[in-house]
Write a protein that binds this DNA or RNA. Structure first.
Length: 791
DNA sequence: ATAGGGTTAG
């Protein structure tokens, strides 16, 4: 074939830079090299553009490097392409390389560069680009300026956006709508509409992009009603909604829980044939899930013809939102089985779903599998997995997530930091929690509440109060949650007067109406101080129905202070509200036991048994042994010792017959209410679990307790057990070994060198949060050498 | 070869 004809064909291919296929591009490339006309930059740039349009960026870059000298046109071509395909980091990298190559960019590529800055939200770099344009005397036309307005809007710098707008010599429709959308994003409905209308008056008719920008802007600022109204107005003005406007308005409809409008829009979607649009399908699923329409979520997904990851993710999170955790997990596994390329959003949604629904171990396992699958967690994943670490006291995992966040440089993220505080507090590491808190560059109300809640959980009321005051000095207004933490801290530390004052100032000074959880705190606060009548009168003055937590707080206090009459009132309410909660029956029978009213106590126990609630007679054992303990402690108001001892024997026979071991949970009650030892961190029910497991596991040759949840300082808790039970105990928590004997204890952290504790290597093993090993029992072989060392 | 709008995870 003669060369001229081939060259002609080649040029024809190169001219079709958007439609030519990749193989044609390769052919053309080969031909350029063969014929030597690759020295003509015009052809090479065409080829470069062809590669760029096929997103063959490595080919494009190598072509760029093959130029004999720096070529402005070639650089610009690739920069446009990078921005076009959302490869913003590459855009900026190439832009800076231009300067290194001694090239001076012209104003034409600035919009692409600025758009990349918007996409990455890199304010400082964008400002530099802007400054470069101004100082180097480039002509910033309305194209450049409009992209600058959008950039500043995106970076939440509305003032700067406005400055650019004000200085414009010639404005066009894009500049007006970009500014209006900026006001919409800020939630300034009035200004947004004003600018939008002003542009219209000057003859700049909004197009669909302008309308959609407004809808998206209102959505962003939470002005959902305005977003929906804008959508409506758009139709009134004769504009037909396109895919973008529908996928923008659907989240707003979902947040408004307006199923009526949602169904109308769904109908519109079907009528207009938008059902194939990925974003719309995802948004529809999301809308139905927010409106709590579980069947419709799956229906929309199944009716969809395409397989789209976004829609799959929306499905998973939608099912999760509606509490269908197992279904979400099954579908997730199904997707995996289909070898679908799940992304970070899919994994994060699934992790969030598990950790929000009590499936902590599953969440941790997913976090590990995610990394095995090669998907990198991001700053959203971390706050989803951390609560799971905290719940099972998996400190090692939490620390690993901490290190991971530091390495990936999203530790400054306010969500990451707040979740970290919460995790450390839950794992008993209140000091580390405080360090995380102190190092946060930006805090929000969640961060402050996390710190306060941590202190409350650890019974450190003074510190919690201090944080509360610091919070206000910093200008952060407390919210409902802040007061819950504050009041519970006061309640647990017996700061009755302070707690009462905060409770009263809540609505008076802060305009926050007390909710049921605050009433539960204040009842418990007064109750602990023995002010039972006062607590009851607060309950009676409540403007809404008290719930089980409130009555439960009263009943617990009545048990502590042996107040039978109020205890019976509270118990009666509780039996109605939670007929199947054994705790209430136990509390009441406790009070009867303390008064020596054995018949009444038996009656309550029989009701409980009648309901099939708890066959373990251990609960009665607690009551009696508790009384014995009190008697020995010198409470002479109790009935006769002999009577109690008889009952005790009777019960213990009964227990043995049923094959139960004595339950030592009563110890906690003594410590918490009487000795005011806050080593137990105010979570007696969790510690009761400790004792419960201890006893139920007593028959096993190795006392290993899996997934034991200790809230607070494990060391102190076990020390307490060792002292009380007068025995030697070895304890392994996630990273330390503790040895308790005769009130003395020694710690070793050799466990950290135990390969079993290294992250993700054997997750099933390392989810053991605490292991208790008593001396009478065998030590597993592979740990024996360590054991010798310690002994 | 240039600018402005969309879904799903905390």
């Amino acid at each position: 074939m003669p060369v001229p004809r081939q060259a002609e064909k080649l040029l024809h291919i190169l001219n079709k830079t958007t439609t030519a296929s990749l193989s044609q591009a390769h052919q053309a490339h080969a031909h350029l090299l063969k014929t030597g006309i690759s020295s003509v930059p015009r052809h090479t740039t065409k080829l470069l553009s062809l590669y760029a349009n096929h997103q063959c960026f490595s080919d494009a870059e190598s072509l760029l490097n093959s130029f004999s000298g720096p070529d402005l046109f070639a650089f610009s071509t690739l920069i446009y392409a990078y921005t076009k395909f959302n490869e913003f980091k590459r855009t900026l990298k190439l832009f800076s390389e231009m300067f290194c190559d001694g090239l001076f960019p012209d104003a034409h590529i600035l919009p692409s560069v600025i758009k990349a800055c918007s996409g990455l939200s890199v304010l400082e770099i964008g400002k530099q680009v802007h400054g470069f344009g101004l100082t180097c005397g480039l002509t910033l036309d309305s194209f450049v300026e409009s992209s600058l307005i959008h950039f500043y809007v995106k970076c939440n710098e509305l003032v700067d956006a406005h400055k650019v707008f004000d200085n414009m010599v010639e404005r066009d429709m894009v500049s007006w709508s970009a500014l209006a959308a900026g006001y919409a994003r800020k939630g300034d409905v009035v200004s947004a509409k004003k600018v939008f209308e002003e542009g219209k008056k000057l003859g700049f008719e909004p197009n669909s992009v302008s309308w959609n920008g407004m809808i998206a802007g209102f959505n962003q600022s939470g002005c959902f009603v305005d977003a929906v109204l804008m959508f409506h107005e758009m139709h009134l003005c004769g504009f037909k909604s396109d895919g973008t406007s529908i996928s923008s308005v659907l989240p707003a409809i979902g947040d408004l829980r307006d199923l009526y409008i949602g169904i109308q829009v769904h109908g519109h979607v079907i009528k207009m044939g938008f059902g194939v649009d990925k974003c719309i399908v995802s948004a529809l699923i999301d809308m139905y899930s927010k409106c709590e329409c579980a069947p419709e979520i799956s229906q929309v997904f199944e009716e969809m013809d395409l397989v789209d990851l976004g829609a799959c993710n929306a499905l998973i999170s939608g099912l999760s939102r509606n509490g269908l955790v197992d279904k979400a997990l099954n579908i997730f596994k199904e997707f995996q089985g289909q070898r679908m390329e799940l992304n970070v959003v899919s994994w994060t949604s699934m992790i969030a779903c598990c950790s929000q629904h009590g499936k902590d171990i599953e969440a941790l396992e997913l976090f590990r599998s995610m990394q095995v699958a090669g998907v990198k967690p991001n700053s959203v994943t971390i706050p989803c997995v951390l609560p799971a670490c905290g719940n099972v006291a998996a400190l090692t995992h939490g620390k690993a997530a901490h290190c991971f966040s530091l390495r990936r440089e999203f530790f400054d993220d306010v969500y990451v930091g707040s979740a970290m505080i919460d995790m450390y507090a839950n794992c008993g590491q209140i000091q580390i929690a405080r360090c995380c808190f102190d190092r946060m560059p930006v805090r929000n109300v969640v961060s402050w509440n996390a710190m306060m809640g941590g202190y409350a959980m650890h019974g450190m009321a003074k510190e919690a109060i201090q944080i509360f005051h610091q919070m206000q000095q910093s200008g952060q207004k407390p919210d409902i949650v802040s007061f819950t933490s504050l009041l519970s801290a006061c309640s647990q530390s017996g700061l009755t007067d302070e707690g009462h004052r905060y409770f009263e100032s809540m609505s008076r000074d802060y305009g926050i109406e007390a909710r049921v959880e605050h009433y539960a705190c204040i009842v418990s606060l007064l109750g602990r101080a023995g002010k039972l009548e006062e607590a009851y009168s607060i309950i009676r003055k409540m403007s809404f129905e008290p719930d089980a937590c409130v009555w439960g707080a009263l009943l617990s206090s009545c048990r502590v202070h042996h107040n039978l009459s109020l205890g019976e009132v509270a118990a009666k309410k509780l039996f109605e509200l939670e007929p199947h909660n054994p705790g209430n029956y136990i509390l009441l029978s406790n009070i009867y036991a303390s008064k020596g009213k054995w018949n009444e106590m038996d009656k309550v126990r029989n009701i409980m048994r009648g309901k099939g609630l708890r066959k373990n007679p251990g609960c009665s054992w607690i009551e009696v042994k508790y009384k014995v303990h009190m008697l020995l402690a010198g409470d002479k108001s109790l009935p006769q010792m002999a009577q109690i001892m008889n009952k005790l024997n009777e019960l213990s026979m009964e227990m043995k017959k049923s094959g139960y071991l004595p339950h030592t949970g009563f110890v906690l009650q003594d410590v918490e209410e009487q000795e005011k030892e806050h080593i137990l961190c105010g979570h007696s029910e969790k510690l009761a679990v400790v004792f419960g497991i201890l006893n139920t596991n007593a028959g096993s040759p190795l006392r290993v307790i899996k997934n034991l949840r200790i809230c607070g300082d494990c060391h102190a808790v076990i020390k307490f057990i060792a002292t009380f039970e007068k025995r030697e105990i070895y304890v392994r928590d996630t990273n330390r070994f503790h040895h308790f004997k005769d009130g003395e204890c020694s710690c070793g952290d050799y466990w950290t060198s135990d390969p079993r504790t290294s992250l993700f290597e054997s997750l099933n093993e390392s989810t053991l949060s605490v292991e208790l090993v008593t001396k009478d029992f065998l030590i597993p072989e592979h740990l024996a050498s360590n054991y010798q060392l310690i002994c």
